[in-house]
Structure formats: C-alpha cells, structure tokens
Amino acid sequence: MIRLGEHDLSTEGDCQTLPSGVVCAPVHQTFSPAEIIPHPTFNRRGTIGDDLALIRLDRPAIFNNQSHSISIITDFVRPVCLPSANHDTETFLGGRFATVSGWGVTERGPDTQILQKVLLPFVNQDECNPHFNNGLLQEQICFGGDGPRDSCFGDSGGPIVGTTANSPISVLLGMVSFGQPSCGVAGVPAVYTNVASYRPWILSNLKP
C-alpha cells in the first residue's frame, strides 16, 4: 500500500486550528503498486549499494493545495523535482541545510505517529567516508552529524530535499539509506542514496 497526503497516522483526517478556524487537509490518497522496479544491482556493490527502487502507482496521483484566508498556501500533495545528472549537491545547497522527513525513531522512541522533519547539513565524502570504513560508493552522499538532529531507524527510503536560494521549488537530493547503530551522534553523519547519480536509470523506466 502507498499513501500520499498523510501526516498523522493516528487520525483519519489531518486538521489544524488557525485563528481563522479549523483547516483540514484533503483525505489522504491510497494506492496499490502496479509495478515495483528495484535497481538491478541493489546490494551487489559496497554496503547497501544502489539502494533505491521505483514504484508505479495503479492510478494517477492528485496534486492539491489550499489557500487559507490568512494568505498562507499549504501544499498537501505535490511533485518533487529530480536533480540533473551532473548535479553537485554541495554547490547547490551553498551552505544551506536540507530537509529530511519520516516517521522513524525519535528521541521519544519508535512509535512516531506524526510525520517529523529536520534540517541537516551536507557532509562531503572525505569527511563522511572514514565513519563507514571508507567503503562509500560514488553514488552515496552524507548529511547530519549536527548534534541530535538526524534520520534514524524507520526513516529508510524517506526523502531529503533542498531548495535553491531564490526558489521554493524542492529538489530530491537523496533518500535515507543507512547509518551507524546510534542515531543523532554529534560529528557522525548518515548515508543517503544520491538521486542525481540515478537520473538516467529513473528516466529510462518512466512511462507515459
């Protein structure tokens, strides 16, 4: 089962009380996979290498947003942009942090019901690789090491996105892959699948 537009797993509807009244998101959308396409060399290179798959939905997703009376635009389901094949994440971010999100383990434990997000710094491979026995692939990138803020168990496969300095458009920089046995350790980043490295493969598997 695939679900879009979900926020709080413990409720059927996601609502927020604002000064102008209660605002609710559209009902989440649930899909079945029409096709699952794992990367052909998943786990054949390095430590959890080529860690990604494509899922084709059984019907088109509905993109939606809602304008509040206080002039705030909230996007509930919207597409994310793929990076270019020659995308350089460090240059793209220019020192800005990226946002990772998921329902994984937090400092409060594993029963996270509300979608969490956190801002993380990019860490280059020269700094990250020694934490993983210098075994990282070129197609892997790292984020984190900034104190307790981190992705963790249960976040795997989740997105980390960034925006340009002058645009709110989100770019999918990576997906949570793996880390150390303890999350949120200062100075220790986690490893993400670098989406830019797989753009040709992703495009080759798209259908109208």
Rank of each mutant, 00 (worst) to 15 (best):
202 I>M: 05
159 P>F: 04
189 P>C: 00
102 G>F: 03
173 L>K: 04
111 D>I: 03
69 S>T: 12
37 I>A: 09
21 G>K: 12
26 P>D: 02
127 E>F: 08
182 S>H: 15
175 M>V: 10
66 Q>K: 11
93 L>K: 05
157 G>L: 02
112 T>D: 10
27 V>E: 15
160 I>N: 03
54 L>E: 11
105 V>T: 05
148 P>D: 09
70 I>S: 14
11 T>C: 09
51 D>R: 01
140 Q>E: 14
167 S>H: 07
110 P>A: 10
145 G>A: 11
61 A>D: 10
39 H>M: 05
12 E>Y: 09
107 E>C: 08
59 R>S: 09
106 T>A: 07
36 I>S: 11
195 V>C: 02
134 N>T: 00
143 F>I: 15
33 P>L: 12
8 D>C: 11
170 S>Y: 12
169 I>D: 15
205 N>M: 11
13 G>R: 15
195 V>D: 03
39 H>G: 03
197 S>E: 02
190 A>I: 02
136 L>F: 04
112 T>F: 11
97 F>T: 13
177 S>H: 01
127 E>L: 13
194 N>E: 04
38 P>L: 11
98 A>N: 09
153 F>Y: 10
63 F>M: 08
77 V>C: 06
109 G>P: 03
151 S>I: 09
143 F>K: 04
186 A>F: 09
41 T>G: 05
153 F>P: 07
96 R>A: 14
172 L>Y: 00
108 R>N: 13
155 D>N: 10
20 S>T: 15
198 Y>T: 01
124 N>P: 13
184 G>L: 07
177 S>R: 02
37 I>C: 12
123 V>A: 13
7 H>K: 01
129 N>R: 09
158 G>N: 13
53 A>C: 09
154 G>D: 08
167 S>P: 06
182 S>I: 14
203 L>E: 15
52 L>V: 06
206 L>D: 04
188 V>A: 02
160 I>Q: 05
5 G>P: 09
184 G>Y: 04
136 L>N: 04
117 K>E: 15
83 P>Q: 07
97 F>Q: 11
38 P>C: 14
164 T>V: 04
